[in-house]
Design a protein around this nucleic acid. Structure first.
Lengths: 261, 261
DNA sequence: TGTTTTGTGATTATACGGGTGACATCTGAT
DNA sequence: ATCAGATGTCACCCGTATAATCACAAAACA
């Protein structure tokens, strides 16, 4: 219930609005006074909040005396919010499309390495990169939870011309991967140093390692204490990070060590 | 472009964050200084804004000196925002489902008339009501723009047991409706007073008029100056509004006047 | 070495939203 | 008719968040 209020605020409602909506959701119908008691919103501000909510299509007002309010059904509410959101994203999409790109003298260096944060973001980028592959994919997975449906799907959808190598840090995980991806060549990585890197005081474990067409690389790590995933991402055949990854492969460290399938 | 910034703020970003993201969207890649000049965000605050954006998965940071930033692709951005939003709606749904309903002595009067605001909200309610119909629907449409695909669909999906009468304020509109809904009985309403109601100084025109199973009624009006649609909605067989609507029908005013199909 | 650029942190100003009270109106009881 | 309580509207205060500015150390550059 505090949860609901919090989420509503994240969705753009003010505190009073959120409290009032939640209050109405459990009251089916109520007056300003009842609401004020229920939600601890000052009675005199209930009216403002309700008006805002009505304008957003989340409550209905009965213009009697005293006024009575009631919330729309949960499905109606979520649909309304969804519509609102979709409209906004649409507008954003249009607005950005009409503007976009100011060309500029390219003073950016060749060695580009970009940082990403967050499981979800990195997951998206990973599948995007996989989908864009034309010749080869080398993927090492460091944790079972990273083997998501989306990931499997993106690998499944690849054309036959793309060679897929998928590695794991343990035999256990390799078996699981082979089960999900019978088409792909799987292996257990020889990169023992990936398994647990000890720095000053913080321990970080490897998350993913993805090399696409030998020209794009993504490496992520996971901070065990927080579970937060961070990644770096390099692109371009001449990119330093990519070169290193290729060199590792050439030495047989990254893939093709003890291939079983 | 101001548009884009505004929408991004509506989607929960702070002003600086929004400006920086838009700035990056048209710069493909840039430093704090470039961004500051482009977006008029104080240079020293660009860094904070970018960090927030990175945490939300909307920009990437190149940790060189000077740092360079770039926005993720538009599709990645919208997907990220969509995911965020979906997760929130999901949480809201769960949270509200676990709580919900405090039963209470029913002191609400029998005469319930609720107010709704906004085209979209009223449209949703209209189709919801139609979908719940079991025996009869009487619908009068006052403006062509209200004959939306959703509305047509909801009427099409009704089981055969439901009698559908759809009226229009003009023969022109009636023909159009008959084209969209060959199954339904259409007519031109005899309610001339609906066409243009003159009050003190403001003129209002009728929007929709919906009677479902003779027990639920929805009437909307449109303020021509603003285009804003407002509606009232009554439910229950004994409801005053509903009774009036039934009486109108009984007098042959509402439907069945000069039925052609 | 001196100068500019870059990144971080602290500080100030301001606008928005939460919180409170005054007041006119309405309602229902006496 | 009168009065007390309830109701709805407004105006106002105040604290926090955020926009905006400044001070400064580290790095890059010449």
């Amino acid at each position: 219930m505090e949860e609901a209020i919090e989420v509503l605020q994240q969705l753009g409602l003010k505190e009073y609005e959120a409290r009032c909506f939640v209050g109405l959701s459990r009251l089916s119908s109520g007056t300003a006074k009842q609401l004020s008691e229920q939600t601890e919103v000052p009675r005199t501000r209930v009216y403002d909040a309700i008006r805002m909510l009505e304008a957003q299509g989340l409550v209905e007002i009965q213009h009697s005396n005293p006024q009575r309010f009631r919330a729309v059904s949960l499905s109606e509410a979520t649909e309304t919010l969804r519509d609102q959101y979709e409209a906004r994203v649409e507008r954003l999409h249009d607005a950005l499309n009409t503007i976009e790109v100011i060309e500029e003298k390219d003073d950016s260096p060749a060695q580009q390495v970009w940082a990403l944060m967050g499981r979800e973001v990195i997951e998206n980028r990973t599948t995007d990169l996989i989908r864009d592959a034309t010749t080869e994919i080398v993927l090492v997975i460091g944790d079972e939870v990273l083997l998501t449906d989306d990931l499997v799907e993106s690998l499944d959808d690849l054309s036959n011309g793309v060679e897929v190598l998928v590695g794991a840090v343990s035999e256990d995980l390799e078996r699981k991967i082979h089960g999900e991806l019978p088409e792909a060549t799987t292996f257990v990585t020889g990169l023992e140093w990936l398994q647990s890197e000890e720095t000053e005081k913080e321990e970080v474990s490897i998350g993913r390692l993805l090399l696409v067409d030998r020209s794009m690389i993504l490496v992520s790590s996971i901070v065990p204490s927080t579970g937060e995933e961070q990644a770096i991402f390099g692109e371009g055949f001449g990119n330093g990070l990519v070169v290193i990854a290729r060199r590792l492969m050439a030495q047989g460290l990254l893939a093709a060590k003890d291939p079983k399938h």
